[in-house]
Each structure stands twice: as C-alpha cells, then as structure tokens.
Design a protein around this nucleic acid. Structure first.
Lengths: 222, 222
DNA sequence: GGGTGTTGGTGATCAAGTCACCAAAGACCG
DNA sequence: CGGTCTTTGGTGACTTGATCACCAACACCC
C-alpha cells in the first residue's frame, strides 16, 4: 500500500524490488496547498518532486517584469527543473508554484544520488523526463513562432476544459498562459462567441461547440 | 597529451584520476566535416558528444515544413540532446548538424552509463549541461515573446561576428536563425545601414559601428 | 447605497509576418 | 562571350498581433 504510488509512474514500474524499497524508504509523500512556491531562483531545492496529484505551473519572470507561462507539470510527471535548482544555477528566472493542491513524492538529494548511481532504470526515468521537457519546449517555441493566436487559444481552451465544458480563467490569465496580451484574448474570444463556439461570463468560458474549436485547431496543420 | 581535452571542459577537471582514465579509454576523439548530420529523428545516436572544436547547429523542422533555429552548441559544451536521441523518443523533430568542421569526444552509451553510475562529478557535469540547455531555452522563449526584432538582430550580429567585423550569412539564413521572415531581416538591415551601423554586400554584413548596435541592445533592458 | 478593485471592451497606432512580384548579382553552359 | 537560370535582396499592400489609453460593467465590502 505504502509503495503503491510507484504504479503511477510509468518507467518506475520495472524497478527491481530492492531499489524500489530504497526509493520508498528514502522519500516522503508530501502535500502542499494551492499557491505554494515549489522552487524559485535563489531558493535551494533539496528534493526532486514526482507529482502524484495536482498540477505545478512553471513560468518565467522576465527582466521586464512580465511573466510567461512555460509549461505545466501533471500528475505522473516529475518536476525536473528542481534538479537545476539543486545545482544552484546562477542566471535563471523560472519559478514553479502549485496550481492546485498538490500531493507529491519528495526525493531528497541523497536518495536521488544513490538511486542514480545504482539503478539503470531510475537513470533512464530521469533522463527521459529531462528529454521530454526539452522536446516539449521545442514544440512550444514552434507554436509561438508559427501558430496563429486563435488556433493556440482554441487548443488551450480544449486542453484546460479537460473534457468538461467549462474553463474558469480570466482573460488576463489566458493571456499570460499563451504569452500574449489580454486584449488579444478578449478579441479572439469575442470572435469565438460570434461563431457560436463558446459563451462567456465573468471569469469563465463555457464551451458550446467543441467541434468548432477542434476543427479550427485541426485545419491549421497542427 | 592524449587526455588533454578534458581540460577544455570545466566540470570534468575535478574528476578523480581513475575515472578520468576510464573516460579517456572508453571514448574516441572523432572529426566530422561541416554539414554532417549529427542526430535526427529516427536516427539512433549511440554517443554523447563533447565538442572540442567547431559548432553544432540544432534546429527544429516544423510540421508546416518551416525550420527554426533553436541553439548552437559551442566548443567546451556537450550535445545533450543526443541522449534524448539515445532514448529513441517518438515525437520530436529536432535535428543537429555540424555547422563547421567539428572535432568532438564521442562517449559511447556503455561508457556513459558506467561513468554516470560511478562518478558523482560526471553526474553533475551531465545534469548541469541539461539544466543549462533548459534555462537557455527559457531565455530564448522570453526573447521571442518580448524582445523587438531589431534588438534581437543586432544582438545576433554581434554574436555571429564573434569580435570580428564580418558576418557571412544571407538574409534568409538570418531569418531562420531568428525565426522570422527574410523580408523583416532585409528591412531591419536597411535601417541599420541607414544609421551607419553596418554595410552590406551579397551574402555578408560588415559591422561598421558596433557601439551603435550594442547600444540598441543594451538600451532595451536585456 | 456608495466606494473600490477586478474584469472585460474598444479604438488608435505600431511592429511584425505574409504574399506577390520584381531586379540585381552570380553561376553555368553552349 | 552572351544568354539563361538560380540565388539573393528589395518593395508595396495587407493582415495579424502587441501596446497604449481609457472606459464600462461587475463583485465585494463596509
């Protein structure tokens, strides 16, 4: 029962029994409330986090004071950037915060180091997580540069709704989420509404015609 | 003499003698001519490369057929994306190619694995390289979203000139380098020329007033 | 009910990307 | 050598997106 969380992480399933218990013994399951700062520049992180439940939002605070959303860590994923934090990197401005209440496995540096040294499976898990992050950033860059705003917004709405009909977010939040201005979101949403794809009320967007949104996304070669 | 290349990599200097020779014994110094494909989707890479000399260009081939430059690996750095390649990641479209003639240390997977397992210093070297890549991508994204094109171009020209006065590149190349259209480069360069900062001829840009370019870059809060 | 802060709407203006097309400079070839 | 072809760069018109300035509607709190 205690070690059942391992099942949530594909890539850890095949850990040999001995390593598996070393991992469980040497780490803690922690819970943090929504809004908690997970890592930030200057703040030394001593744990690698594996998310069991909830999401962590990683964003960059720009020199100019503006913020840009980078990616979201979901349950079943690990928050590899904290390892960068462990190395106490000088010049980075990314920060991670709990977007919802979060339950996670915290692997302290010592345990992490030991597992990396001893288990090829664990190594592969960690490297895969890193690589995944990097390739995700590649597609993000590709999107930012080549994809139209309306397509990106439509796609993000579908993603945030997660199968449901409602997205609770202000225009300003959607703006930082896509790295654009609130006005652009307002105008694009008006257009979506005009086409009957969504309905709006203060702080929320209701998806009426997901087909329409999905068609927009699909039609533009993404 | 044989192992002198290690000196080029800060972070490997402090390797204990035993590990050091294991690294030297278990790896090869290779040379490839400019233009060689270093890694690409579908092509399994079996070596981690540490660049001794030359540069490797990493770019993404977009779904839409367009290309965008991501980053450049310089001498003294390692090409960590090849490890992603080792893991045979399904859905990535990045490729690396030698931009100049390249000399590099090729560390085969077996050696790599052994060193990771046995040497904390080597581990830190690899993780630092990964983290550096990720944080570099963060700043790239920040630039793309918030920085003006003229500032980015000025900064890139200074970088490509590497202290000299001449940048040999067509407008189209500078375009993909910055993820923008050739026309935008043409117009911005005309403006720079009008201000007396550069002179142009077919396929090359000569920097006349680096101060001017540098001032533009500095003045915009980067 | 009257502030007060938050959220959303709008027009004007500017930067940048896109499209269509042309002109000049080299490269190639008979 | 002259003629054709390819590469490179220039330009105008138009669209999209970012930025600025402002205002209106709403929620919340006393």
């Amino acid at each position: 029962m205690q070690e059942s969380w391992i099942e949530k992480f594909r890539g850890l399933n095949s850990l040999p029994e001995e390593i598996r218990s070393e991992l469980v013994e040497g780490s803690d399951v922690v819970s943090v409330p929504a809004g908690t700062q997970i890592f930030a520049p200057g703040q030394t992180a001593d744990n690698l986090l594996l998310l069991i439940d909830g999401t962590v939002r990683v964003q960059q605070r720009s020199d100019t004071g503006r913020e840009i959303f980078l990616y979201r860590v979901h349950a079943g994923e690990s928050c590899v950037l904290t390892t960068a934090c462990m190395l106490a990197f000088e010049d980075y401005a990314a920060e991670g915060s709990a977007e919802t209440d979060v339950t996670a496995v915290a692997i302290p540096r010592a345990t992490f180091d030991g597992l990396i040294a001893r288990s090829p499976v664990f190594r592969e898990f960690v490297f895969a997580a890193y690589s995944r992050r990097i390739t995700d950033l590649f597609t993000l860059i590709d999107d930012i540069v080549f994809q139209r705003m309306d397509v990106r917004l439509a796609s993000r709405l579908l993603e945030l709704a997660a199968g449901g009909q409602v997205v609770r977010a202000t225009h300003a939040v959607l703006g930082t989420e896509l790295g654009t201005a609130r006005e652009v979101i307002s105008r694009t949403l008006s257009e979506f509404q005009r086409r009957g794809w969504i309905e709006q009320s203060r702080g929320e967007v209701r998806l009426i015609d997901e087909e329409g949104l999905a068609y927009l996304v699909k039609s533009s070669g993404s």
